[in-house]
Amino acid sequence: MLVIINYNLGNLKSIQNMIRKIGFESKITNNIEEIRGATKLILPGVGAFDNGMHNLKELGLISVLEKEILENKKPILGICLGMQLLTKKSEEGTLSGLGFIDAETKLFKLENTYKIPHMGWNTAKPIKKSKLFSEMENQENRFYFVHSYYVDCSNTDDILTVTKYGTEFVSMFEHENIIGAQFHPEKSHKFGMQLLKNFLENY
């Protein structure tokens, strides 16, 4: 069973709704036993970095996530803030991130003509092969973004897609079983649905 981790931030039902539409079951939970029993995980989230880390800690989820992801190598997809929490730290907060990926989260520093948050439908261009983009290679994939901070990967090998907004930033990373998406697949209609389907079926 796929588990959507509920740490009291963000709209979790919309992810579950899309997964159901694709034809899979999922569970929204913060129960440690259920997370241990999960086949794969989604770490969603909308909100502030420190709130996210604080809630994960309060719920006692950090050590179970370390074990399931780093040792048991369960596939995890971090979405938006969830992606950022997988990094080591963020300019948005003072708490340490989960640090599952060698990356840091930074604030956009763009010319005045670029509005922040970066909001709307933008392209994500894959720069390496991935099962996440099966049947999506020959088209322009646009996803729904809404964020003010972005992930900066230390290892370019980890970068899966890049997106242009004033600068070029990492819109997805993939390092072994650890995947992050800055955009919201669950709000990205047919493109998001195909991507989530690939995560559900190919991992």
Partner: peptide, 8 residues
């Protein structure tokens, strides 16, 4: 509306 709507 929301269970079957996949845009914002």
């Amino acid at each position: 509306l929301t269970p079957s709507t996949f845009i914002p």
